[in-house]
Design a protein around this nucleic acid. Sequence first.
DNA 1: CCTTGACCTTCCAGTTGCTGGAAGCCCCAT
DNA 2: ATGGGGCTTCCAGCAACTGGAAGGTCAAGG
Lengths: 131, 131
Amino acid sequence: MNIGEASAASGLPAKTIRYYEDIGLVRPGRGDNGYRDFVESDVHKLVFVARSRSLGFTVEECRHLLSLYEDRGRASADVKAMAREHLARIDRKIADLEGLRATLGALVERCHGDDRPDCPILERLSGGPAA
Amino acid sequence: MNIGEASAASGLPAKTIRYYEDIGLVRPGRGDNGYRDFVESDVHKLVFVARSRSLGFTVEECRHLLSLYEDRGRASADVKAMAREHLARIDRKIADLEGLRATLGALVERCHGDDRPDCPILERLSGGPAA
DNA sequence: CCTTGACCTTCCAGTTGCTGGAAGCCCCAT
DNA sequence: ATGGGGCTTCCAGCAACTGGAAGGTCAAGG
């Protein structure tokens, strides 16, 4: 199948699929006309990568997960370890964002937000105590 | 003062300060030797930008905040609106991450993580119902 | 047979926000 | 004058695509 169908089947833009080929995530065959030719297993891989990406794994992690997936004898412990690491990253990110949210939220609350020029947000950014 | 001192005073790497000059966030003067010459107000701006960035504003937003800050007659409503928008973005991001966390956390829980090859995480990535 | 339009190809550039490194001045102390 | 820092510029690269230009291919309609 052509890249357009592969795109429809996987939900990934054609551009992205070409990019994934560039970096060696998929290796579709080629027809006589030079068009890429995707078989079922290629599409399967694309879906796998799309799902992994949507869970926030980096492309390199996807590559790794893919290789684990294709290694029929691999241990699930490897996968679990990666997933756990990723989970920890997510938790850190959430914590960071919640800190931000608290700080910024407090500033927004204190800003009266009318047409007067004094503004606690700018004051804090400019010179107030950090954090 | 030289870029090194400005860096120490603002907490930003010299490289970053040069970059900020490149994109027009600061415009330090120059000495006869070609060295950048930062005055107090330049450092002040750098600190302002550093704080805004650390609150997660994009560089373009920092530029905007800076111009609002320098406009003595601006309305605090403008600032508040930007901050609120940013707050909404943060909230969306947190929600996304929490969704991820839930999905991935559930998968990790269900993965026994030993040396057997079957793994619910890979199964989900490969073909299970999409989140 | 020719044209039209959709689809495919490659390659180059741009995005965001820096960061690293190379090559080459400059300044100060010994 | 020599050494070691600090300063300058410019070029490249990170992630993960995305947009666009220039051109080849294919199927349908007239």
